[in-house]
Amino acid sequence: MNTDAHERARKLIALAGPETLSAADRPSDQRSSNAWLAAHLETCASCRAFAENAAQTIHGLRAIPIAAERSLVSTTQIRVRRRALELRRNRERLRLVSVSCTAVTLCALLSTVVLWRGFEWLGERAQLASSVWQVGFLVFCVMPALVAAILLLAKDRHLADHTGSYRG
C-alpha cells in the first residue's frame, strides 16, 4: 500500500465531520469514498489506530469545558445597553440637527423669495432701474455678514492694541 492511500484515508477520517446524513442522503462520490475507506481500514492497522485516536481526540476536545462567568455576561450586557443608549442619543441628535438644517434652508429660501419680491415692488414704486434695486437687495442680504465681520475685525484690533499697550 502506498503512502498516498494512507494519507487519503487519514484525511477522510479527519474530515468525517459532525454531519449525520444517512447513507442514502450522501452524495455518490462521498458514498464511494466511505466504501473505499471502510475497505482500507479492514486491511490497514495503522489507519485503524489513527481513526481510533482521532475519535478519542475529538471526544477529549469536547470534554474540555470552558464556561463564561456570570460577571462577564452581566458586565457585557451592561456595556451593550450603555452603548445602545449612546447610539440612540447620537441618532436623535443627528436627526434634530438635520431637521433644523432643513428648516433653516426652507426659511432662507422662503425669505429670499419674499425679500426679492419686496425689493422689486419698492423699485417699481420708486421708479428705479432694476439693476439698482437688485444691488440694494444684494447689499441687504450681505449686510449682516458684513457688519459682523467688521465688528469682529474691530474687536481683534482693539484687543491687539490693548495687549500692545500693556506690553509697552
Binding site: 470552558i66 464556561a67 463564561a68 462577564l72 455576561v73 457585557t76 450586557q77 451593550v80 445597553r81 447610539l87
Partner: peptide
C-alpha cells in the same frame, strides 16, 4: 432596531460557545 432585550438574550444564549471559541 438595536433591540437591547434581544441582545441580552443572545449574550446569554451564546455566552459559553463564544467564550470557548475565543479562548481557543
Amino acid at each position: 432596531r438595536r433591540d437591547a432585550d434581544l441582545l441580552d438574550r443572545l449574550i446569554e444564549q451564546y455566552q459559553h460557545r463564544l467564550l470557548r471559541y475565543l479562548v481557543y
